[in-house]
Design a binder for these strands. Sequence first.
DNA 1: GCCTGCTAATTGACATGTCAATCAGGAGTG
DNA 2: CACTCCTGATTGACATGTCAATTAGCAGGC
Lengths: 163, 163
Amino acid sequence: MTKATPHRRSRRQLPTADELRIWRDFIETAEALRSRLASRLQVESSLSPSDYAVLLALSEAQDRQLRSSELAAHIGWERSRLSHHLGRMERRGLIRRQECATDPRGAEVHLTPSGAEAFRGSTVPHLRAIREFFVDALTPEQLRAAGEIAAALRVHLDARDKE
Amino acid sequence: MTKATPHRRSRRQLPTADELRIWRDFIETAEALRSRLASRLQVESSLSPSDYAVLLALSEAQDRQLRSSELAAHIGWERSRLSHHLGRMERRGLIRRQECATDPRGAEVHLTPSGAEAFRGSTVPHLRAIREFFVDALTPEQLRAAGEIAAALRVHLDARDKE
DNA sequence: GCCTGCTAATTGACATGTCAATCAGGAGTG
DNA sequence: CACTCCTGATTGACATGTCAATTAGCAGGC
Protein backbone atom coordinates (compact mmCIF):
# COMPACT_ATOMS: atom_id res chain seq x y z
CA MET A 1 0.00 0.00 0.00
CA THR A 2 1.40 3.34 -0.95
CA LYS A 3 0.60 5.45 2.04
CA ALA A 4 0.51 9.17 2.45
CA THR A 5 3.96 10.15 3.49
CA PRO A 6 4.70 10.42 7.15
CA HIS A 7 5.95 13.68 8.54
CA ARG A 8 8.63 11.67 10.30
CA ARG A 9 11.05 9.19 8.81
CA SER A 10 10.20 7.55 5.56
CA ARG A 11 8.45 4.28 6.11
CA ARG A 12 10.35 2.62 3.33
CA GLN A 13 13.78 2.89 4.82
CA LEU A 14 15.49 0.22 6.79
CA PRO A 15 16.13 0.91 10.46
CA THR A 16 19.25 2.83 11.44
CA ALA A 17 21.92 1.23 13.56
CA ASP A 18 20.53 3.03 16.60
CA GLU A 19 17.03 1.86 15.96
CA LEU A 20 18.25 -1.67 15.49
CA ARG A 21 20.18 -1.58 18.72
CA ILE A 22 17.09 -0.41 20.58
CA TRP A 23 15.02 -3.16 19.00
CA ARG A 24 17.49 -5.79 20.06
CA ASP A 25 17.77 -4.45 23.59
CA PHE A 26 14.04 -4.30 23.83
CA ILE A 27 13.19 -7.73 22.54
CA GLU A 28 16.06 -9.50 24.25
CA THR A 29 15.35 -7.86 27.57
CA ALA A 30 11.70 -8.79 27.38
CA GLU A 31 12.74 -12.34 26.65
CA ALA A 32 15.18 -12.36 29.55
CA LEU A 33 12.46 -11.05 31.86
CA ARG A 34 10.05 -13.70 30.75
CA SER A 35 12.53 -16.47 31.26
CA ARG A 36 13.61 -15.16 34.63
CA LEU A 37 10.09 -14.90 35.89
CA ALA A 38 9.30 -18.37 34.61
CA SER A 39 12.18 -20.03 36.40
CA ARG A 40 11.44 -18.15 39.60
CA LEU A 41 7.82 -19.28 39.53
CA GLN A 42 8.76 -22.81 38.69
CA VAL A 43 10.80 -23.02 41.85
CA GLU A 44 8.41 -21.16 44.14
CA SER A 45 5.13 -22.60 43.01
CA SER A 46 5.59 -25.36 40.44
CA LEU A 47 3.48 -23.33 38.05
CA SER A 48 4.58 -21.79 34.77
CA PRO A 49 3.35 -18.35 33.72
CA SER A 50 1.06 -20.14 31.28
CA ASP A 51 -0.41 -22.27 34.04
CA TYR A 52 -0.87 -19.12 36.06
CA ALA A 53 -2.72 -17.35 33.26
CA VAL A 54 -5.12 -20.25 32.86
CA LEU A 55 -5.74 -20.57 36.58
CA LEU A 56 -6.20 -16.82 36.94
CA ALA A 57 -8.87 -16.74 34.25
CA LEU A 58 -10.67 -19.67 35.81
CA SER A 59 -10.44 -18.21 39.30
CA GLU A 60 -12.11 -15.04 38.15
CA ALA A 61 -14.78 -16.83 36.17
CA GLN A 62 -18.33 -17.43 37.21
CA ASP A 63 -18.44 -20.79 39.05
CA ARG A 64 -14.75 -21.22 38.41
CA GLN A 65 -15.41 -22.65 35.00
CA LEU A 66 -15.30 -21.50 31.41
CA ARG A 67 -15.98 -22.87 28.00
CA SER A 68 -12.72 -23.78 26.37
CA SER A 69 -13.18 -21.21 23.63
CA GLU A 70 -14.04 -18.46 26.10
CA LEU A 71 -10.91 -19.27 28.01
CA ALA A 72 -8.85 -19.12 24.83
CA ALA A 73 -10.31 -15.74 23.93
CA HIS A 74 -9.81 -14.43 27.44
CA ILE A 75 -6.12 -15.15 27.58
CA GLY A 76 -5.52 -14.65 23.88
CA TRP A 77 -4.27 -18.09 22.95
CA GLU A 78 -4.78 -20.20 19.88
CA ARG A 79 -7.13 -23.04 20.40
CA SER A 80 -4.67 -25.81 19.79
CA ARG A 81 -2.20 -24.33 22.19
CA LEU A 82 -4.86 -24.24 24.85
CA SER A 83 -5.93 -27.78 24.12
CA HIS A 84 -2.42 -29.10 24.56
CA HIS A 85 -1.88 -27.06 27.68
CA LEU A 86 -5.16 -28.10 29.24
CA GLY A 87 -4.22 -31.71 28.58
CA ARG A 88 -1.02 -31.25 30.53
CA MET A 89 -2.74 -29.36 33.33
CA GLU A 90 -5.42 -31.99 33.54
CA ARG A 91 -2.79 -34.70 33.94
CA ARG A 92 -1.39 -32.70 36.83
CA GLY A 93 -4.82 -32.40 38.41
CA LEU A 94 -5.04 -28.60 38.18
CA ILE A 95 -8.13 -28.51 36.02
CA ARG A 96 -10.81 -30.87 34.78
CA ARG A 97 -12.66 -30.88 31.50
CA GLN A 98 -16.19 -32.07 31.10
CA GLU A 99 -18.73 -32.10 28.37
CA CYS A 100 -20.74 -28.94 28.03
CA ALA A 101 -24.43 -29.25 28.92
CA THR A 102 -25.73 -26.88 26.27
CA ASP A 103 -23.50 -27.86 23.34
CA PRO A 104 -22.23 -31.43 23.06
CA ARG A 105 -19.29 -30.26 20.97
CA GLY A 106 -18.02 -27.94 23.63
CA ALA A 107 -15.96 -28.53 26.75
CA GLU A 108 -16.26 -26.84 30.11
CA VAL A 109 -13.00 -26.29 31.90
CA HIS A 110 -13.29 -26.47 35.69
CA LEU A 111 -10.86 -25.39 38.32
CA THR A 112 -10.16 -28.30 40.69
CA PRO A 113 -9.63 -27.72 44.42
CA SER A 114 -6.02 -28.64 43.92
CA GLY A 115 -5.74 -26.14 41.07
CA ALA A 116 -7.33 -23.43 43.19
CA GLU A 117 -4.90 -24.20 45.97
CA ALA A 118 -1.89 -24.05 43.66
CA PHE A 119 -3.14 -20.76 42.27
CA ARG A 120 -3.57 -19.25 45.73
CA GLY A 121 -0.09 -20.30 46.72
CA SER A 122 1.50 -18.82 43.65
CA THR A 123 -0.16 -15.44 43.61
CA VAL A 124 2.03 -13.67 46.09
CA PRO A 125 5.31 -15.02 44.74
CA HIS A 126 4.15 -14.12 41.27
CA LEU A 127 3.30 -10.55 42.15
CA ARG A 128 6.43 -10.19 44.19
CA ALA A 129 8.55 -11.31 41.26
CA ILE A 130 6.86 -8.80 38.97
CA ARG A 131 7.61 -6.01 41.38
CA GLU A 132 11.12 -7.15 41.90
CA PHE A 133 12.11 -7.73 38.29
CA PHE A 134 10.05 -5.09 36.56
CA VAL A 135 8.45 -2.40 38.68
CA ASP A 136 11.43 -1.84 40.93
CA ALA A 137 13.76 -1.52 37.98
CA LEU A 138 12.00 1.51 36.56
CA THR A 139 11.35 5.05 37.66
CA PRO A 140 7.69 6.06 37.79
CA GLU A 141 8.12 7.99 34.56
CA GLN A 142 9.72 5.01 32.87
CA LEU A 143 6.91 2.81 34.07
CA ARG A 144 4.35 5.13 32.61
CA ALA A 145 6.32 5.33 29.37
CA ALA A 146 6.51 1.54 29.24
CA GLY A 147 2.73 1.38 29.39
CA GLU A 148 2.39 3.88 26.60
CA ILE A 149 4.94 2.13 24.45
CA ALA A 150 3.22 -1.21 24.89
CA ALA A 151 -0.11 0.36 24.03
CA ALA A 152 1.28 2.03 20.91
CA LEU A 153 2.89 -1.19 19.72
CA ARG A 154 -0.27 -3.13 20.34
CA VAL A 155 -2.42 -0.67 18.43
CA HIS A 156 0.01 -0.72 15.55
CA LEU A 157 0.12 -4.52 15.45
CA ASP A 158 -3.64 -4.81 15.60
CA ALA A 159 -4.03 -2.26 12.84
CA ARG A 160 -1.71 -4.25 10.62
CA ASP A 161 -3.78 -7.34 11.26
CA LYS A 162 -6.69 -5.90 9.40
CA GLU A 163 -4.89 -4.65 6.34
CA MET B 1 -3.38 0.81 48.77
CA THR B 2 -3.20 3.97 50.76
CA LYS B 3 0.44 4.65 51.12
CA ALA B 4 2.22 7.80 52.03
CA THR B 5 5.23 6.76 50.12
CA PRO B 6 8.68 8.28 49.98
CA HIS B 7 10.21 9.35 46.70
CA ARG B 8 10.30 5.70 45.70
CA ARG B 9 7.69 3.11 46.48
CA SER B 10 8.44 0.62 49.16
CA ARG B 11 10.18 -2.42 47.79
CA ARG B 12 8.24 -4.83 49.89
CA GLN B 13 4.81 -4.13 48.58
CA LEU B 14 3.06 -5.98 45.86
CA PRO B 15 2.41 -4.15 42.62
CA THR B 16 -0.65 -1.95 42.33
CA ALA B 17 -3.35 -2.71 39.80
CA ASP B 18 -1.90 -0.08 37.48
CA GLU B 19 1.57 -1.48 37.71
CA LEU B 20 0.25 -4.93 37.07
CA ARG B 21 -1.66 -3.79 34.01
CA ILE B 22 1.46 -2.18 32.62
CA TRP B 23 3.44 -5.33 33.25
CA ARG B 24 0.91 -7.43 31.39
CA ASP B 25 0.70 -5.02 28.50
CA PHE B 26 4.43 -4.90 28.29
CA ILE B 27 5.18 -8.60 28.42
CA GLU B 28 2.28 -9.64 26.25
CA THR B 29 3.05 -7.06 23.63
CA ALA B 30 6.67 -8.10 23.50
CA GLU B 31 5.54 -11.67 23.07
CA ALA B 32 3.13 -10.70 20.31
CA LEU B 33 5.87 -8.80 18.54
CA ARG B 34 8.21 -11.73 18.73
CA SER B 35 5.67 -14.12 17.38
CA ARG B 36 4.61 -11.79 14.60
CA LEU B 37 8.15 -11.24 13.48
CA ALA B 38 8.85 -14.95 13.59
CA SER B 39 5.95 -15.88 11.40
CA ARG B 40 6.73 -13.12 8.95
CA LEU B 41 10.31 -14.29 8.64
CA GLN B 42 9.28 -17.88 8.32
CA VAL B 43 7.25 -17.01 5.26
CA GLU B 44 9.70 -14.61 3.68
CA SER B 45 12.94 -16.39 4.28
CA SER B 46 12.40 -19.83 5.84
CA LEU B 47 14.55 -18.72 8.73
CA SER B 48 13.49 -18.26 12.35
CA PRO B 49 14.81 -15.36 14.41
CA SER B 50 17.04 -17.89 16.13
CA ASP B 51 18.45 -19.08 12.85
CA TYR B 52 19.01 -15.47 11.93
CA ALA B 53 20.89 -14.72 15.13
CA VAL B 54 23.21 -17.66 14.58
CA LEU B 55 23.83 -16.81 10.95
CA LEU B 56 24.40 -13.16 11.78
CA ALA B 57 27.05 -14.01 14.34
CA LEU B 58 28.78 -16.35 11.92
CA SER B 59 28.61 -13.85 9.08
CA GLU B 60 30.37 -11.25 11.14
CA ALA B 61 32.97 -13.66 12.45
CA GLN B 62 36.50 -14.01 11.24
CA ASP B 63 36.52 -16.60 8.42
CA ARG B 64 32.80 -17.11 8.94
CA GLN B 65 33.44 -19.56 11.70
CA LEU B 66 33.35 -19.61 15.47
CA ARG B 67 33.99 -22.01 18.27
CA SER B 68 30.71 -23.27 19.55
CA SER B 69 31.23 -21.73 22.96
CA GLU B 70 32.18 -18.36 21.48
CA LEU B 71 29.03 -18.43 19.44
CA ALA B 72 26.97 -19.23 22.52
CA ALA B 73 28.52 -16.35 24.43
CA HIS B 74 28.07 -13.99 21.51
CA ILE B 75 24.37 -14.52 21.18
CA GLY B 76 23.78 -15.18 24.87
CA TRP B 77 22.44 -18.71 24.67
CA GLU B 78 22.88 -21.69 26.90
CA ARG B 79 25.15 -24.29 25.48
CA SER B 80 22.63 -27.03 25.22
CA ARG B 81 20.19 -24.82 23.44
CA LEU B 82 22.84 -23.96 20.92
CA SER B 83 23.81 -27.59 20.49
CA HIS B 84 20.27 -28.60 19.68
CA HIS B 85 19.77 -25.68 17.38
CA LEU B 86 23.02 -26.26 15.54
CA GLY B 87 21.99 -29.86 15.03
CA ARG B 88 18.80 -28.72 13.36
CA MET B 89 20.57 -26.10 11.28
CA GLU B 90 23.18 -28.60 10.22
CA ARG B 91 20.48 -30.96 9.01
CA ARG B 92 19.15 -28.13 6.91
CA GLY B 93 22.58 -27.44 5.48
CA LEU B 94 22.90 -23.92 6.89
CA ILE B 95 25.99 -24.59 8.94
CA ARG B 96 28.58 -27.29 9.34
CA ARG B 97 30.44 -28.41 12.44
CA GLN B 98 33.93 -29.76 12.39
CA GLU B 99 36.47 -30.73 14.95
CA CYS B 100 38.58 -27.91 16.23
CA ALA B 101 42.24 -28.02 15.26
CA THR B 102 43.63 -26.69 18.51
CA ASP B 103 41.35 -28.46 20.98
CA PRO B 104 39.97 -31.88 20.13
CA ARG B 105 37.09 -31.34 22.53
CA GLY B 106 35.89 -28.26 20.76
CA ALA B 107 33.82 -27.76 17.64
CA GLU B 108 34.16 -25.11 15.00
CA VAL B 109 30.92 -23.93 13.51
CA HIS B 110 31.20 -22.91 9.86
CA LEU B 111 28.80 -20.99 7.71
CA THR B 112 28.04 -22.95 4.55
CA PRO B 113 27.53 -21.21 1.20
CA SER B 114 23.89 -22.14 1.42
CA GLY B 115 23.68 -20.66 4.91
CA ALA B 116 25.35 -17.46 3.75
CA GLU B 117 22.91 -17.25 0.88
CA ALA B 118 19.90 -17.74 3.16
CA PHE B 119 21.24 -15.11 5.50
CA ARG B 120 21.71 -12.59 2.70
CA GLY B 121 18.21 -13.18 1.46
CA SER B 122 16.65 -12.71 4.84
CA THR B 123 18.43 -9.56 5.93
CA VAL B 124 16.28 -7.03 4.16
CA PRO B 125 12.95 -8.67 5.04
CA HIS B 126 14.14 -8.94 8.61
CA LEU B 127 15.08 -5.29 8.88
CA ARG B 128 11.96 -4.21 7.09
CA ALA B 129 9.80 -6.15 9.54
CA ILE B 130 11.56 -4.54 12.48
CA ARG B 131 10.89 -1.11 11.10
CA GLU B 132 7.33 -1.94 10.25
CA PHE B 133 6.33 -3.62 13.49
CA PHE B 134 8.45 -1.71 15.95
CA VAL B 135 10.13 1.47 14.80
CA ASP B 136 7.17 2.79 12.85
CA ALA B 137 4.83 2.21 15.77
CA LEU B 138 6.68 4.60 18.07
CA THR B 139 7.42 8.28 18.15
CA PRO B 140 11.10 9.20 18.33
CA GLU B 141 10.69 10.00 22.00
CA GLN B 142 9.02 6.67 22.66
CA LEU B 143 11.78 4.90 20.82
CA ARG B 144 14.39 6.58 22.94
CA ALA B 145 12.42 5.79 26.07
CA ALA B 146 12.13 2.15 24.99
CA GLY B 147 15.90 1.95 24.78
CA GLU B 148 16.29 3.43 28.22
CA ILE B 149 13.70 1.16 29.72
CA ALA B 150 15.33 -1.91 28.23
CA ALA B 151 18.70 -0.78 29.55
CA ALA B 152 17.33 -0.16 33.03
CA LEU B 153 15.64 -3.54 33.14
CA ARG B 154 18.75 -5.25 31.92
CA VAL B 155 20.95 -3.60 34.51
CA HIS B 156 18.50 -4.49 37.23
CA LEU B 157 18.29 -8.12 36.13
CA ASP B 158 22.05 -8.45 35.89
CA ALA B 159 22.48 -6.93 39.30
CA ARG B 160 20.08 -9.45 40.78
CA ASP B 161 22.08 -12.25 39.20
CA LYS B 162 24.99 -11.55 41.44
CA GLU B 163 23.19 -11.24 44.71
C1' DG C 1 51.59 -42.73 35.52
C1' DC C 2 47.32 -41.89 38.26
C1' DC C 3 43.88 -39.13 40.62
C1' DT C 4 40.96 -35.35 40.80
C1' DG C 5 38.66 -31.78 38.95
C1' DC C 6 37.64 -28.63 35.18
C1' DT C 7 36.06 -27.47 30.46
C1' DA C 8 33.69 -28.30 25.74
C1' DA C 9 30.07 -30.06 23.89
C1' DT C 10 26.41 -33.34 23.23
C1' DT C 11 22.54 -36.11 24.60
C1' DG C 12 17.98 -37.65 26.41
C1' DA C 13 13.82 -36.76 28.60
C1' DC C 14 10.50 -33.85 28.71
C1' DA C 15 7.68 -29.10 28.50
C1' DT C 16 6.04 -26.03 25.36
C1' DG C 17 4.42 -24.02 20.83
C1' DT C 18 2.88 -24.00 15.82
C1' DC C 19 0.57 -25.70 11.87
C1' DA C 20 -2.35 -28.52 9.30
C1' DA C 21 -5.56 -32.20 9.47
C1' DT C 22 -9.30 -34.35 11.67
C1' DC C 23 -13.57 -35.40 14.11
C1' DA C 24 -18.07 -34.35 15.60
C1' DG C 25 -22.05 -31.67 16.00
C1' DG C 26 -24.90 -27.45 14.64
C1' DA C 27 -27.58 -24.85 11.03
C1' DG C 28 -29.38 -23.31 6.69
C1' DT C 29 -31.13 -24.70 2.19
C1' DG C 30 -33.09 -27.50 -1.26
C1' DC D 1 -34.12 -35.91 4.84
C1' DA D 2 -29.57 -34.90 2.22
C1' DC D 3 -26.01 -31.60 1.35
C1' DT D 4 -22.93 -28.22 2.39
C1' DC D 5 -20.76 -25.17 5.30
C1' DC D 6 -19.47 -23.47 9.83
C1' DT D 7 -17.97 -24.06 14.60
C1' DG D 8 -15.73 -26.31 18.87
C1' DA D 9 -12.23 -28.82 20.07
C1' DT D 10 -8.67 -32.29 19.71
C1' DT D 11 -4.82 -34.61 17.54
C1' DG D 12 -0.28 -35.66 15.37
C1' DA D 13 3.91 -34.24 13.55
C1' DC D 14 7.33 -31.56 14.38
C1' DA D 15 10.24 -27.14 16.02
C1' DT D 16 11.98 -25.25 19.97
C1' DG D 17 13.63 -24.77 24.87
C1' DT D 18 15.18 -26.36 29.64
C1' DC D 19 17.43 -29.28 32.85
C1' DA D 20 20.27 -32.91 34.32
C1' DA D 21 23.36 -36.43 32.99
C1' DT D 22 27.04 -37.88 30.05
C1' DT D 23 31.17 -38.15 27.10
C1' DA D 24 35.72 -36.72 26.17
C1' DG D 25 39.80 -34.48 26.73
C1' DC D 26 42.86 -30.99 29.33
C1' DA D 27 45.64 -29.88 33.48
C1' DG D 28 47.70 -29.87 38.00
C1' DG D 29 49.50 -32.40 42.05
C1' DC D 30 51.44 -36.30 43.79
